[in-house]
Structure formats: structure tokens, C-alpha cells
């Protein structure tokens, strides 16, 4: 039972850039995109790339299991206390956009319990092309699609593809096998996104998550500046 909690201060009401004690909170980056596009694999690769230089934590939003959190635990990309799972009631986009309170609690609890943190990655449950994160929850968002989902997805656009701060076209190693035209995907993405950046990556390649990790470093430099 929890009958006495009087030793903690109240949490912040909104997504303030500062914590109740006045210190700057961690940068929060959301990763969204269709089911199976490689969000968890990208999170895992980012943790491996950045954990030596940054204090990191991850929030997963599984739709009906704890698989993403369990995968990250099994892969031991971070100590278990730095990984937290939110349950989304069959509606992953609601939990990252319309009603963000459970996710805000998860990020705040991580900062309280394992902080100070530099960066928190919030992975959305796999969803559709319209699922984007609320600005009340994250400071920047990455939309992850893959070449196997069809090379017409960049052309179809939608809020994730067109407006995310970074678009990742993942699994480029599979392009020859599924008949996806990478040049066309890149051109369509450019047409949808204008100046917003796009990364084509294969986590099975030597470079892996390198470009995305560089982008995260740049966002973090801007955040702490």
C-alpha cells in the first residue's frame, strides 16, 4: 500500500523544459512509424552508439505485450532500471498524441529514479502513417519506415512522413529482394519534406545507425546550448 508519499514534491503540470527543482530536463526524442519498420532495432542501436557518452533512458509503448521492453532488456542495451514500458489500451497513437499523461509520468519517473539524464527515447507502438507525437511529450520526433513496407509510402505522405523532424527509411539491405526503388523513395521523401532531413539506413550494414546517432547528437547540442 502507498499511504505515505509526503517526501516528494509535486510533478510539473506540463512539459516544461525545466524540472521542478529548476534544472534542465532531458531531451526527449520520439520514434514512431508502422509496425515492424525497425523502431526498436533503431532504439537499441542508438543506445549502443550513445551510452558511453550520454546518460540515456528509454520508454516503450507496446500495443498489447511488453515485447519491445523485453527485447531491449534481453539485448542488455541499457541497465533494466533505465527502460520503462507504458500500456496503451489498444490505441498507441492516443498515448503519444491525444492523452500523453502516462508517457509523461514514465519520462518524469525515469528522471527522478535514474537521473540526471541527457536523453530519453520514447518508442511508440507500431501504428499507421498518421500517428505523430504531441509536442507536449517530445522535443523532436523520428519517423521510421522501411523499404519492405512498399516503396510508395514516401509518396503517400501523411503527417509522419511529411512532418517528422527526421525520416528514416530503414532496411535498405532488403531493397533488392522486395523490388523497392531507393532512389525513388528518396526523391518522393524529398518532395514531401522539403528541407527536413531523411536518412536511408540498414542496421545490418557497417554504418548501421551512424547517421541517426549524429542527428541525435546535433539535436542534443542545440538543446543544451
Amino acid at each position: 500500500m502507498h499511504l505515505d508519499h509526503s517526501h516528494h514534491g509535486p510533478s510539473a503540470v506540463s512539459a516544461d523544459a525545466h524540472r521542478p527543482d529548476g534544472t534542465r530536463r532531458a531531451l526527449r526524442i520520439g520514434l514512431g512509424g508502422p509496425v515492424g519498420s525497425g523502431k526498436t532495432a533503431t532504439v537499441a542501436a542508438l543506445c549502443r552508439a550513445l551510452r558511453e557518452e550520454l546518460s540515456l533512458a528509454v520508454v516503450t509503448n507496446d500495443i498489447y505485450t511488453r515485447e519491445d521492453a523485453e527485447f531491449l532488456l534481453r539485448e542488455a542495451v541499457l541497465p533494466p532500471e533505465r527502460i520503462s514500458a507504458v500500456e496503451t489500451g489498444a490505441c498507441p497513437h492516443t498515448a503519444i498524441r491525444d492523452d500523453i499523461s502516462a508517457n509523461l509520468e514514465a519520462v518524469e519517473d525515469l528522471e527522478d529514479e535514474v537521473g540526471p539524464l541527457d536523453l530519453i527515447l520514447v518508442e511508440s507502438g507500431g501504428d499507421n502513417l498518421t500517428a505523430t507525437f504531441s509536442k507536449g511529450l517530445v522535443d523532436a520526433q523520428i519517423f521510421v519506415i522501411d523499404v519492405a513496407g512498399g516503396d510508395d509510402i514516401p509518396r503517400k505522405g501523411g503527417p509522419g512522413v511529411s512532418t517528422a523532424d527526421l525520416l528514416v527509411v530503414n532496411k535498405t539491405d532488403l531493397a533488392p529482394y522486395v523490388g523497392s526503388d531507393l532512389a525513388r523513395m528518396a526523391a518522393d521523401a524529398k518532395a514531401q519534406r522539403g528541407e527536413l532531413p531523411v536518412v536511408l539506413q540498414s542496421l545490418r550494414s557497417e554504418e548501421g545507425v551512424r547517421d541517426v546517432a549524429d542527428w541525435v547528437r546535433a539535436r542534443l547540442a542545440a538543446w543544451t546550448a
Binding site: 500500456e87 496503451t88 489500451g89 490505441c91 492516443t94 498515448a95 491525444d98 492523452d99 500523453i100 499523461s101 502516462a102
Partner: peptide
């Protein structure tokens, strides 16, 4: 029902 207080995740 859309008041953002977390109810959507509970049955």
C-alpha cells in the same frame, strides 16, 4: 471521454 486523463488505457 476525451479529457486527457489516461482512462483510454483501462477497461
Amino acid at each position: 471521454g476525451r479529457f486527457p486523463a489516461g482512462g483510454h488505457a483501462h477497461s
